[in-house]
């Protein structure tokens, strides 16, 4: 029984860290700010779920599990709101999304000019 729990938490932790790394790589491969926000924030919440559930398996039914669940809930409620506020501020400031290859150069100099 002990090995099963260990193996399962190993898998969860590895899956979580793999997802996090894929999100971080997504930060670099995506051409435009809005797709980068998508890459970063989507993997944020699921990576947190996998890693924290891996830790919960290790902790078992103790106060630590309650704290882990609270941390997970905090992350789940705050990071989507932060990403929404970020994209809303960027859009309000006039950062145009990269719709197609046609306005690629225009968006590029727009992004550079908004390096305030």
């Amino acid at each position: 029984m002990e090995q099963v729990v260990d193996i399962l938490s190993w898998l969860l932790l590895l899956a979580g860290s793999f997802l996090g790394i894929s999100g971080a790589i997504g930060l670099f491969r995506f051409p435009d700010f809005y797709s980068r926000v998508h890459a970063a924030s989507v993997t944020d919440t699921l990576c947190a779920l996998l890693i924290i559930s891996g830790l919960v398996l290790q902790a078992g039914f103790t106060l630590i599990t309650v704290k882990l669940i609270i941390v997970l809930l905090f992350l789940w409620y705050t990071s989507p709101v932060a990403s929404h506020a970020l994209v809303k501020a960027a859009h309000y400031h006039g950062l145009k999304p990269l719709l197609s290859d046609s306005n690629e150069d225009e968006v590029k100099e727009e992004e550079v000019s908004s390096k305030s």
Binding site: A48, Q58, V112
Partner: peptide
């Protein structure tokens, strides 16, 4: 390039710090 990319990266850095502290605790 834009300041919002920086805020996004700092936000992701922060959430990963939370996970890092939890894993380090264990």
């Amino acid at each position: 390039p834009s300041v919002y990319d920086r805020i996004l990266a700092v936000n992701m850095f922060g959430t990963k710090t939370v996970l890092f502290i939890a894993v380090l605790g264990f």
